[in-house]
Every structure is written in C-alpha cells, then in structure tokens.
Design a protein around this nucleic acid. Structure first.
Lengths: 242, 242
DNA sequence: TTAACAGGTCAACGGTGTTGTCATAAGGTG
DNA sequence: CACCTTATGACAACACCGTTGACCTGTTAA
C-alpha cells in the first residue's frame, strides 16, 4: 500500500473528519509543532496527534508515508523560519554569530525535529539559500575559496551539532533531566579533594556552568580563531608577491 | 517495587537463566553494544536484548531500573574505552587535540551507541575520571578555575556533538548516504553563477570538503582560540597587580 | 540441613506505529 | 438533477514496545 499518500497538488476532496475538522498537510504540521511546544517531545505520537486534530490516527497516513516524513516536514518548516528571521548586516563576524545563535535557538524551539534532521542534507530550497548566503559572507570577508568552504563547513556543522546535542538533552523526559542536574550537585560537587582535586576545586563553577549550553562560548572561540586565520591569510598575501 | 535493583556490590547469588546464561551488568552492556553495532539503534529493545541474552526481558530490571539507566551504562563504557587509550604527555594543546580526536573516533567506532548516549550525563566512574583528568590538563596549563570549566565544557560538548553528528550520518542507511553525496554533486555543483555565485565559485571545494567530517578543522580552530585566550589571561595577570 | 531471599519467569497492562478493509461524501459528468 | 468514481476518513487488528506484580526456585549462609 505505497499509494496511500496522495501528492499535495492532486488533493481535491476535503472531506471533514467525524468531528468536523478539515485536514491538510499544513494543519497537521502546525498541530504537531503546537503539541511539541505545549507538552514536550513525548507528547507527539500519531495517536495523540490524531486526537488533537479530531481525526482518526490512521487518517494522517493519507498525508505522510510515516512519522519520519512528518518529522522532516516539521524540520523543513523550521529551517525556513530561521532563515527568514536572519538579516546579515555587513560585519561578517557579527553576522555569523547571529546566524549561529539563531540556528541554535531554532533547533531548541523544536528539539526533536532538530535531533532527527540535523545530520541530513536535504538539497532543498531553504538549505541552498542558507549555503549561498553564508558562503557569500565568508568570501565577502576576504577568505579565499578553499578556506571559505572549510570555515563554512566547520561553522555550519558546529551549529547543527550543538543544536542537536542541546536539543536531545532538552527533549529528555523531565525526570531524566532533573536527574542530570542532580548528578552535578550531588555527585560531582561532593567529591573529596584528595581523590579528585580538580573537580573539587572547580565544583562551584561546574554546577552553574554545566547547566547551560556551551554553544555561545564555543561559537565565540570559533569566530575568534576564524578572524585570526583571516588576518594571517591577508598578512601573508600583502607580504608575498601579487 | 523500587528495590528491584540490587547494587552491584551486594550481588552474590548468580542463578543461571533457563537457557543457562549467567547474567551480569557487564554482560548486559556488552550484549547491548553488540546488538547496536550489528543491527542498528532500532534493534535495541528490552525484549530483543533479553532474547539475545537468553533471558526473560524482565530479568534485566534486576540490573537496571529502566532503559535509561542501561543507556547511561553504555555511555559510560564508551567513555571508558576512549579514556583507557588516551595518555596525556604534558603539552596541553597536543593532549586536548589527541583526546578530542580519540573521543570522535570512539564515537564513530560505535555510532549507534554514540548517537544515543552523547548527550547524557552519567555521573558514573569513567565519566568522573574523564572530567577530573581534562580539568587537570586545563588548570595545569594555567587557566583560572572559572575559565577552565568554561573551556572544558565547550571542549567536551564540541567533541560529543561532532561525534554524535558524524555518527548519525554514518549510521544512515547506505542508500540515504549515497543520496546525500549525490546532492552535492548533482544539485549544488550545477547551480548557475548568476543565481548562486558563491556556491558556483566554490562548487569544486564543496564537493570534496563536505564529504568529510569538519571536526578536525573545528577542533584546531577551538584550540587556537583557547591558546590565544590563555595568552591574553596570563598577560593581563603579569601586567596587573599581584 | 534448612530457611531466607536474590533473582529468573510469567502474564498482564497500557502504550506505540502501521496497515487492510470498509463506508461514504465530494466532485465530475451527462 | 442523478449517477459513478474515488479520495479519504474510520475501524479493527497486528506486532511491537517498556514496565510491573506475583510467583517460583536455586544458592547461600547459618
């Protein structure tokens, strides 16, 4: 039964469900995102989504082949939102910092979509647009092509990787997340100085620091190093022959 | 029934299962990792694990409170393997680079386990040992406590995040991975210069560069920035009052 | 030798994604 | 307007999943 899903363009009849709701791809994605936002990652299941929509769970399979396809639709919408909100201003370091933070925040806004989509190359419109723009920022800053690609690659993977890591953590059941916070307070903060001198000495910092994402710090280190690299490259160019 | 799990130290009787297997925490973790490696993440369930062990699924609950605790045990074993192979030599930059590359390689060696465990704080023995050692390297290098924790946090999260990202990609079904490579060759490399000038200009580099992990590059940028930060800190200290 | 009990087994519960089948309302056609 | 086709929603069932309470039995300490 592989022809269960009808391509969106071919949809014409919109029979309402028993409860009077007229389904559509958009409505389903929208409702799924609302469920995720309101009740967390574990609240999203085909059955719950069906209930929230006022439709039989199996009706969703007329719109998405499986849950994975639904996740990708959510992820795609996410990329679009991030990109639409970003407006480069001319300072390449500031622009990249802004883009990175927006990608990270966008991932955290829909953690479980981010977890599933971060490591995929879609080749779709929004992604291409993002690559083009980011590369433009780096080349405009003065990076030679090969270097621009290297920096771009590291930058985007870092944003995606941290986005996924922090999203995965955020998507954890509440009990597990609280247990992790407790580990820092109850286990690490109580290790004695004689067996674990370094943890003991920094325990206070560990408890406060490990609660938050390290992405902003990592991003700033990244941008610092990238700027240094650019300075180094242009200096070599100025000194050398044409 | 919260006393279902008996602490490992208190275990004494080891009744074999119906099929003659003598269970243990180690055997369960080992078997779980083998299942992950052989049949992918979706092959790991309590019931399948029980079958693979030759025991009733519910027997596992004598060793782990729930599946989450089992995941943490797997994560810790992964850390342990990496840690045992790492021997710091005194140069903090070289040591951290080596540790980062080993963590990344360790994740790729067990991609399925890495994907599931990278974002967990276990509070178990190996993890504690890893935190202690890495903090020691940074404090030994001269970072003040708060800064050592910040750098440590960014470093370890970066290694885990890239490890998970690249693992997830590696664990993709073969067809999907090939499709992704094709996207760079067939879609990105063919975009015309007038609509996508930056992608067009760097297409050659994109095709070759995006195939590989960007972690080594990101790690080197990270270490460069960290070293610069240390120099800056010690310079300020030398200049200022005692 | 025996009594306690750790630990393996069984059966059941309420959840999950998914699919084969059926019924029916929407929409085109005459 | 009536008729026919068919898209699409509903239903029921399947095979899983994690988890738990009750039971049973081999191991071990006394």
């Amino acid at each position: 039964m592989s022809d269960r899903v009808v391509p969106p363009a071919a949809r014409r009849r919109r029979r309402p469900t028993k409860q009077g709701v007229v389904l559509s791809e958009e409505l389903i994605v929208e409702t799924a995102m609302r469920l995720l936002g309101e009740h967390g990652a574990e609240a999203l299941s085909v059955r719950r989504l069906g209930r929230a929509l006022g439709a039989d769970p199996s009706a969703l399979y007329r719109y998405f082949r499986d849950t994975d396809e639904l996740m990708l639709a959510i992820a795609d919408e996410l990329i679009g939102r991030t990109l639409r909100a970003w407006h480069p201003g001319g300072d390449w370091v500031a622009d990249l910092r802004d883009l990175g933070l927006r990608m990270h925040a966008g991932a955290l806004a829909q953690p479980q979509a981010a977890v599933l989509s971060s490591y995929r190359v879609t080749g779709r419109a929004y992604e291409i647009q993002a690559v083009e723009t980011a590369l433009g920022v780096l080349r405009g800053a003065g990076f030679p092509d090969a270097e621009a690609v290297r920096i771009y690659h590291a930058f985007v993977d870092q944003a995606l990787a941290f986005g996924a890591l922090d999203s995965a953590n955020k998507a954890l059941p509440k009990a597990a997340r609280e247990a992790e916070a407790a580990v820092w307070r109850a286990t690490y903060a109580r290790l004695p100085a004689d067996t674990h001198p370094h943890i003991h000495a920094t325990a206070r910092h560990l408890v406060t620091d490990m609660r938050h994402s390290s992405y902003p710090a990592a991003l700033d280190l990244f941008l610092t190093a990238a700027a240094a690299r650019l300075a180094q490259l242009t200096a070599a160019e100025d000194a050398g022959p044409v």
